[in-house]
Amino acid sequence: MVERIDSMTPSSESRGNAYNGYFMLVLLLVLLLSPVLLLIAAAPKGAVVASAVFAAVSLVFILIGFFMIQPNQAVVLTLFGEYRGTVRKDGLHWVWPWFGNEKVSVRAHNMHSERVKINDLRGNPIEIACNVVWRVADTAQAVFDVDDYKEFVNIQIEAGLRTVGSRHPYDSMSEDDETTLRGSADVVNRELIVELNERLHVAGITVDEAGLTHLAYAAEIAGAMLRRQQADAVISARRKVVIGAVGMVEDALEKLAADDIVELDDERRAAMVSNLLVVLCGDSEAQPVVNTGTLYQ
């Protein structure tokens, strides 16, 4: 029978207690001066020697317990392997020498990922990279729940980038409101932030900002995709030209009929529409033909 192993219980940051380092520094100076004061006071030689030995031992004992915290830094305290809290207040602090302490930076970190090759929603190979601003929110989780939280962040950023990049196509092949990597940067960036926060929550890491910094088709299909984009642009432009030309022809026919300028039957109306569309949609300038007869000759 295989025994089931329960999932890891997440750590949680708590406040740690440390003594005022400046007070301990004054105490250390007093201990160092005590043998000198006894010598000046003509105390017995044995007392002076004992005071000197005690001051030397105290010097080593007290110096080991000092640690300095700069702004936006924290120190995780442990006692024989047991978590005893986190000190976040900046300044000089002191703890008993048998306490272990590890400094953790809670400042904002900026990381630019490597370019990775993935397949978008349509299976097209693309190259993508991102920039992420992250910070340690829970020092206990960062130190105790993952082996190396910085390396963990690097790996999860790449994994999250691959996940978000494969959800959407690189570009839209129609004019609908489809979310794309190239045209919907705000949406993709928000998805990336949510994805990374979910992945990094186990390590006590919070992502403040994330955004794509590189997006391109892979080299093997870049040329073909460029030609497709150019063709799509030509088709889109032609479509707008034709729609505009049809509107102009319709306005012209309505104006001629409303002002009683000329009366056209269906055949001549069709011919006029054809000629106007050729003139308006053609790439080259139209060559006018002057009709010296009647409209029907």
Rank of each mutant, 00 (worst) to 15 (best):
W134K: 07
G247P: 02
P71K: 12
S113W: 06
G282S: 14
N131V: 10
N72L: 13
Y149K: 06
C281T: 15
M225T: 03
A42M: 06
A216F: 02
P10Q: 11
N189K: 01
G85L: 05
A56Y: 11
S274F: 07
A52W: 04
N131W: 03
A257W: 02
N154A: 13
V30M: 14
P169R: 06
N72P: 01
R190C: 04
A47M: 14
V57D: 03
A270Y: 06
L215S: 05
R239M: 12
P10V: 07
E114R: 06
D266C: 04
L33T: 10
Q156G: 02
I5K: 12
R135L: 12
E267D: 13
V57W: 14
H201M: 10
Y217S: 08
V242P: 03
E254N: 14
D232L: 15
C130W: 03
V279L: 13
L29C: 14
A137T: 10
N20K: 06
D265K: 01
C130T: 08
E127V: 11
Q229C: 05
V194K: 08
I40V: 13
V143M: 12
G204S: 10
P10E: 13
N124C: 01
A159D: 07
Q287S: 10
A42W: 06
G183V: 05
E250K: 09
V132C: 00
V49P: 00
D251C: 07
A258V: 10
N154I: 10
D138Q: 07
M225F: 00
A203F: 04
Y22M: 10
N119Q: 04
S166L: 01
S113V: 01
L212H: 00
A258C: 05
D90Y: 09
T213E: 06
D148Y: 04
C130Y: 00
V36W: 08
Y296T: 02
E250I: 04
N101Y: 14
Q297S: 13
R199V: 04
G100F: 03
F144D: 05
A43Y: 01
E254I: 14
V262S: 00
S11R: 11
S172C: 11
R227V: 12
L226M: 09
Y296P: 04
F144A: 07
A137C: 02
Q73Y: 08
L264K: 05
E102D: 03
V249R: 11
Q73I: 07
E3S: 11
N119C: 00
F66E: 06
E195W: 00
V278Q: 12
T86E: 07
A42D: 14
N275T: 13
I235N: 05
N197Q: 07
L276A: 15
Y22V: 13
E158L: 14
G16P: 09
L92G: 07
E178Q: 13
L25H: 06
S284L: 15
I235S: 13
I243H: 01
A257M: 08
I155E: 15
T179Q: 00
I221F: 02
T139S: 12
V289K: 11
D251I: 10
